[in-house]
């Protein structure tokens, strides 16, 4: 099954979504990511029992924080699928990609660019 998904998506592998913390999601945005989604195993199927439930809670925390600081909580989402569901993986990737295209680029990226431009103008 050689399925393709949007090339804009960069996959970061973790041993379990329970490893993902709020700070990892926030740092991604600080570094310029336009969106972050976490794909965990089906709820109830976690090898470590609670990993994907913990991930969901942290995704919700990150959503709230990003909403509070004006970046937008919709840029973060949690999905669940089983490892054999490649077509669903592609569907989620496309859904997220479209959502981000609709929301536009991460405002932090733009702000950094414009600040850099101002600094260069001052020093030049």
């Amino acid at each position: 099954m050689r399925l393709s998904y949007p090339t804009s998506i960069k996959i970061i592998r973790v041993p379990c979504t329970g490893k993902v913390d709020v700070i990892h999601i926030l740092r991604s945005f600080e570094k310029g990511a336009d969106g972050v989604y976490v794909v965990g195993c089906m709820e109830g199927d976690c090898h470590f029992n609670k990993g994907n439930f913990r991930a969901r809670k942290r995704v919700e925390q990150a959503q709230k924080l990003l909403e509070d600081i004006g970046i937008g909580g919709e840029r973060v989402k949690m999905y669940n699928l089983s490892s054999s569901e490649a077509p669903l993986f592609v569907e989620y990737a496309k859904e997220m990609s479209e959502k981000i295209l609709e929301l536009g680029p991460n405002p932090i990226k733009e702000a950094k660019k414009s600040l850099r431009g101002q600094n260069e103008a001052v020093s030049g």
Binding site: D21, V22, I23, L65, I69, G70, I71, P107, I108
Partner: peptide
């Protein structure tokens, strides 16, 4: 330490978004 990291990141982003580093 964890909450310090999260809050620092959130504040940095908030101010950057307002055009202030």
């Amino acid at each position: 330490k964890k909450e310090v990291g999260v809050l620092a990141s959130a504040l940095r982003m908030y101010f950057l978004n307002k055009g202030k580093e």
